[in-house]
Design a protein around this nucleic acid. Structure first.
Lengths: 329, 329
DNA sequence: GTCTGATCTGTAAACGATTACAAGAACGAT
DNA sequence: ATCGTTCTTGTAATCGTTTACAGATCAGAC
């Protein structure tokens, strides 16, 4: 008792396979034909095979979203936004996780040529020549949520980290906090590098000097905790900006353990404004880098490129805003 | 310049398509044949089409994991465990999110017949006749992480909520907290019902009466906050058990807003022992319902069933443990 | 009754792989 | 030289759809 095929339906309905296919796809057919086919379909419980269909028509109506770490709540926000847009356009969204290594991302992009999906939305942590090359050569449209060189000639949607940093520093300065430390993620990642640069610029704009800069070895809660002692060995800061919310929350735990209160002793600012910022205690003031909007825009770019692969690549920058909560005075 | 097919490779190498396929699949071939084919493959940048391949061989080497809410950190834990097992077995894992409605889940299960994946691992929030029926009739193996009736005849891996509740109550009682309230999620869900029952039993075992029981309308942080006032309108409890970590964290925010400290005024226990429990402040004592192990076992069951679809359905129950942190005295 | 369109339906050729089968080559044994 | 093995390679059928094309049917106009 194996799966019925279109041929089985045709036989049961006493018509040709072509007619069945036409009815199924809503092409014109007589009243009676439609009726017979539909009866046969529901009698046999026929479901068309997506593989065979997509082999023929060349589209899968699936889109892939690749993220580095499912545990990072910023991707949750982005994923929700992407899902909404692609679902409205009639696509299924499948999510895969790549891990932090660029080689896995390259393998993923290369693998898209196998016809798994009609498009790929990728948010790479690290970018190298290989990745850019594989994206350029990819058989299906790719949109990058993040920063890749313009010469890659690919649609991108990225955040404005420097501007975000400036918002954070503005806010801290206006609260009278001018001895600012920075807890970054790995500086060899794209966001890590952007934030380091943004931090330096923002301080310069305020005529301030960084009190301390520490690099966690990952963008995770655990890494944030692990990096805290190094940061705490430097005293003399009254505020810390963290490269993302997970690091900020990790740091806040260690601050509490060291007997420091937030925001009285140390103000803490996170970045991403993910669900975690709202959930943490005290709720975390966080730079909203527009992850939902980036997701939405990226999804739209992807759909547009699937529609017309010859359009000029666009590079969208989403502007940040600041969500002030109770981790700053 | 479209994608090269196996025929193109064959032409370029001056051999037949069969030979190309054989070389690609590692079947015996002469030194020279292998050499010629591989040169042609890398010259053309040929990548086999997974759709065509799976259409012929009947397997996609993809597995689907369907979860209700990507924002719930318990699924992150589970996802990681599942991913590890299936990747080791040579499968790709794709994740889709269903939302809280059972109709979406039914649609998803039915849709599996389209050949998207070789197996489905689903963790349904709500279960009805339709869902059970669709699972039983599903073309591909399905494993349920959660509780469905034994008569469904499907492999399941579930948590032991009542036992978990007992651990929580034991712990609270041993701390001297006996006026225990309960913040549940929707009771019309499978976990909601199980936890309500477990809570009642656990209190009875200790000869205690529930001080208050409130139902949030979802298993989320926001719902936890929203349900807090109703709970707080009943005074007189010195501990609250929450149906999951998100609810617990939501509640703790409102407790703080009401001027109550955790754990001094009110002890709080969560369930799931997700990353959030560790990240919250104070760190949340939480019942570990074995989500990682459930994910691992479920993935193993799925792989085993793909191997042999005639094996008797198994029903695995994973035992809970308690992770004591600082939200209890 | 025949012809012209307009409709509807069926036949068969794709899509890109795998694989059963057969044919050819190579080689040693007789 | 012939035969039988074994090993390699090629031809063609197949998986389950869609769709170009052709054939059939039918109505209306002459």
């Amino acid at each position: 008792m194996s799966r019925p095929t279109i041929a089985g339906v045709a036989r049961a309905a006493g018509v040709s396979v072509a007619s069945v296919s036409r009815v199924l796809n809503g092409l014109p057919a007589t009243e009676e034909m439609v009726e017979r086919v539909q009866r046969a379909v529901s009698e046999l419980g026929y479901v068309p095979d997506a593989r065979a269909r997509s082999l023929k028509v060349g589209r899968t109506f699936q889109l892939t979203l690749a993220v580095a770490d499912v545990g990072n709540p910023v991707y949750v926000t982005m994923m929700r936004a992407v899902e909404e847009v692609v679902a409205a356009a009639g696509y299924r969204l499948v999510v895969t996780t790549t891990g932090p290594d660029v080689v896995d991302e390259v393998a993923l992009v290369r693998g898209m040529a196998r016809g798994y999906a009609d498009g790929l939305l990728i948010s790479p942590l690290r970018v190298d020549e290989d990745l850019v090359k594989s994206i350029r050569e990819c058989e299906v449209p790719v949109v990058v949520a993040g920063n890749v060189p313009a010469k890659a000639g690919v649609d991108t949607v990225r955040a404005n980290s420097p501007k975000g940093m400036l918002l954070a520093v503005d806010h801290l300065a206006s609260c009278g906090r001018k001895r600012i430390a920075f807890l970054n993620g790995p500086a060899d990642t794209v966001p890590g590098a952007a934030r380091a640069k943004g931090f330096a610029e923002a301080l310069k704009a305020h005529n301030l000097k960084p009190v301390a800069v520490t690099e966690a070895n990952d963008f995770t809660f655990t890494a944030g905790r692990a990096a805290a002692p190094a940061l705490l060995s430097t005293r003399g800061f009254d505020a810390v900006i963290c490269a993302n919310d997970l690091l900020a929350v990790g740091l806040m735990h260690e601050l509490a353990a060291a007997g420091l209160t937030v925001p009285e002793d140390v103000a803490v600012v996170g970045m991403d404004d993910s669900e975690l910022a709202e959930q943490s205690f005290p709720p975390l003031t966080s730079v909203n880098l527009g992850s939902a909007e980036r997701g939405r825009r990226a999804a739209e770019l992807l759909l547009a490129r699937i529609e017309d692969n010859d359009r000029a690549p666009r590079r969208i920058v989403v502007q940040p805003s600041l969500s002030i909560r109770r981790s700053t005075p």
